[in-house]
Amino acid sequence: MVLTAALPAPASLAARQPVAGETIRVFFDNDFLGPGQSNIQAMIPLMRDPRVRLEGVGVVTGDAWLTEEVQHLLRFLEIAQRRDIKVHAGAEMPLLRTPVEMANWEAAYGKVPFKGAWSTPRQGRTYHPDQPRLVPPLTEGAPMLKPAADDAVTALIRAVRAHPGEVTIVAAGPLTNIALALRVAPDLPDLAKAIVIEAGKVDTGFGRATGNTDYATDFNFLFDPEAAHIVLTAPWKRITAVGNVSSSIKMTPELADRIAAAGKPVGSYVKRYARLGQPLWDEITVAVALDPTLVTEEVVAHLDVETQRSASYGQPLIWKSDMAPAGTRAVHLVRAIDAARFTRRFVEQAAR
């Protein structure tokens, strides 16, 4: 296990900093629960960093159903005046998990309080677990913008093949779309520059029992364990898992006020719809993908996901490199970031 830590960032981390004027090609895949909140707010760095060339945005069922997520994202892009960004609908269901299977698993091994699109309806939330194509009235207004005609898997494969060695795949939701793309195009890991995922929350068992269970649960692995396994065992040039660190900074009233202070449409949107107290999971994931020098500590270890139908189904598995089973791969697990620099930059980007 290799550990790099302390500020300033080690040379091995600093060497990955993008140079001025460099184009950073990104394909972003996420589950866009809305309005606002971490999923959609993660679009802000991708829209505001002048180095970024966003090759497409894939949508996957996760925190909400696919059809509703697409509508929330399209409306946000209208508000942000970024109608040029292409939105591609992807997988509506995980590879194997179903609501019935998850309910049976809960009966045997314990409750999962947050099940994303399959969550029990409750006051103040618009969950509709039995109606996958229902779009409740959007509080931010219905979009006029339409999604692209081609699906997320097709768009991802096309983007990576068009720019070999240049596209970083950033996946902040369940990994269903990425796994499907790997099955269609097994050359994807050779052609992509890297993949950065939000998941990988190791050592969270005590936190699930003593704190906010939702925030200590690796939902993106849990919702589609088989997809996570396929992605983690593919031969990418580099895999980064933001993991636990994605929960380290939360949206506070003070942060929302700073973002809204400039009076710009995106800042006002965040101020109105941000969920206070919620970690900035996906915003941090995107920020790390765009600027790896934000990372001040990382561990390199082998990572996989339990796919046996046991009490540990969907939980991350981690080994030292010399102890790992065949087929697993080294992953850069982020352990700490420069929180002040991340927050300052995110506020500036939202206010532009």
Rank of each mutant, 00 (worst) to 15 (best):
M1R: 14
M1H: 14
V2G: 12
A5G: 05
A6P: 05
A6G: 05
A9F: 01
A11K: 10
L13W: 02
A14E: 10
R16Y: 07
Q17Y: 08
V19C: 05
A20V: 14
T23Q: 10
V26I: 12
F28W: 00
G36I: 06
N39T: 02
N39R: 13
I40D: 00
D49E: 12
P50L: 02
E55I: 01
E55L: 11
G56A: 13
V59K: 01
T61E: 08
W65D: 11
E68P: 01
H72I: 01
E78F: 06
E78R: 07
I79N: 01
A80E: 01
Q81K: 14
Q81N: 11
H88A: 10
H88Y: 11
A89M: 05
A89Y: 02
L96A: 11
L96T: 15
R97A: 12
T98D: 09
P99N: 03
E101C: 10
M102T: 08
W105P: 08
Y109W: 14
K111Q: 14
F114H: 13
F114R: 05
T120M: 14
Q123C: 03
R125M: 13
Y127K: 00
P129W: 03
D130G: 12
P132E: 02
V135Q: 07
P137V: 08
A142K: 12
L145R: 06
P147K: 06
D151V: 08
D151R: 05
A155Y: 06
R161G: 14
R161N: 15
A162H: 01
G165R: 05
T168W: 05
I169N: 01
V170M: 09
A171D: 15
A171I: 12
A171F: 10
G173W: 07
P174M: 04
L175R: 07
R183I: 04
R183V: 03
A199G: 15
G200C: 13
K201C: 09
G207F: 06
R208H: 06
Y215N: 09
F219A: 05
N220C: 07
F223I: 03
D224K: 00
V231H: 07
L232E: 08
L232K: 03
T233D: 11
A234F: 05
P235D: 04
P235N: 03
W236M: 08
K237L: 00
R238G: 12
V242Q: 04
N244F: 06
V245A: 02
K250D: 12
T252I: 10
E254L: 12
E254N: 11
L255S: 09
L255N: 10
R258N: 04
A260D: 09
A261H: 04
A262L: 07
A262H: 09
G263L: 04
G267R: 00
G277Y: 11
E283P: 09
A287M: 06
A289K: 01
P292Y: 00
P292F: 00
P292W: 00
E297F: 12
V300A: 15
L303F: 11
L303G: 06
E306D: 15
Q308N: 15
A311S: 13
P316K: 13
L317S: 03
K320C: 07
K320N: 13
S321C: 11
A324K: 01
G327W: 06
T328S: 12
L333N: 07
R335A: 13
F342P: 08
R344C: 03
R345A: 07
V347L: 10
E348Q: 11
Q349I: 13
